[in-house]
């Protein structure tokens, strides 16, 4: 039983990270129907920016988190303007390949500057651990879960209570109609990228602190899994991304903990395929019907 509880703790911490990355995915996909492969790499950049802010800028946890979020927001917008905007009216596959290209570009530019070696993260949070029976919960896990929840509530607020959020929802439903209603589609899309990328940046810093290890290729797999989480939760749905992230995190932990850890990644992908076939719109997604 204690082992089970410990695994739940492990799963929730891992899942919160996926959830934070998945939020960006779900927003971007919701609005321009593009799998932003570079999203995982924005998360990687967030981790490195946080690293630099703490090491060279001597910042604390929250200022570093903020710096990383702002930098990633800017990078996200630049990527959108430079690489994705010219392709908005071309085929899906062209956009997807561009996204892959941007992803490779970010990875290898980073590798060019910082090298391929993993780096450890500077310690900014106290390494305190709480023992509940034999279940161990450490400070970083609490920070991760709390930050994820706080950011999600913030996002939910932005999307549902602000004008920008309203514009985002309008554009995601029908960009042409939104434009006719006087919504600036371009800037709305930029906002979406900015917010999504900022969240990825936050996830990067949290992961750096939690696992104490960052490298230029760290974004690939979490990026893909976060996408799975977004699909499971329902593309476009913010609570869906959160639930999806937590589900994938917990599922991975349980496959490793009670099954064979080697089939952990395979299980995630298999899960994705099963969801796509049974319920393509995801848990909380809206059903859309293809029109002729």
């Amino acid at each position: 039983m204690e082992q089970f509880l410990q695994q739940v703790v492990n799963g929730i911490s891992l899942g919160s990270i996926y959830a934070l990355i998945a939020l960006g995915y779900t927003m971007v996909y919701g609005i321009i129907k593009l799998i932003n492969f570079a999203h995982g790499d924005v998360y990687m950049i967030g981790a490195f920016v946080g690293f630099a802010a703490i090491t060279y800028g001597k910042m604390g946890f929250f200022p570093a988190l903020l710096v990383a979020m702002i930098s990633c927001a800017i990078i996200g917008v630049v990527i959108e303007k430079v690489a994705y905007k010219p392709l908005r009216n071309s085929t899906r596959i062209a956009a997807l390949i561009t996204a892959i290209g941007v992803s490779l570009f970010l990875e290898y530019v980073m590798m060019f500057f910082v090298g391929a070696e993993v780096r450890s993260y500077p310690k900014v949070l106290t390494e305190k651990a709480f023992h509940l029976g034999s279940v161990v919960i450490n400070m970083q896990q609490i920070y991760i879960v709390l930050t994820a929840i706080a950011l999600m509530i913030l996002l939910q607020f932005i999307v549902h209570k602000t004008k920008t959020g309203k514009a985002m929802r309008a554009v995601s439903i029908d960009p042409d109609a939104a434009q006719l209603m006087g919504i600036k589609v371009d800037s709305t899309i930029s906002y979406t990228f900015a917010i999504g990328s900022a969240f990825a940046g936050a996830a990067g810093v949290l992961v750096g602190i939690y696992y104490n290890s960052i490298d230029p290729l760290m974004g690939i797999l979490p990026g893909l899994k976060a996408f799975v989480a977004a699909v499971f939760g329902g593309i476009g749905s913010i609570p869906g991304a959160m639930i999806g992230g937590l589900t994938i995190g917990t599922m991975e932990t349980f496959v490793s903990g009670y099954g064979n850890s080697m089939y952990r990644d395979a299980a995630v992908f298999l899960f994705l395929i099963v969801i796509l076939i049974i319920k393509p719109s995801g848990l909380l997604g809206k059903n859309t019907r293809e029109k002729v």
């Binding site: 492990n10 797999l221 932990t253 490793s256 903990g257 850890s261």
Partner: peptide
Amino acid sequence: EEGYVAKDKDFNAILTKIKG
């Protein structure tokens, strides 16, 4: 016997398993 693959970062699940 447990396994992992290079670039993994989260080993809590397998460690919790062997802890028992």
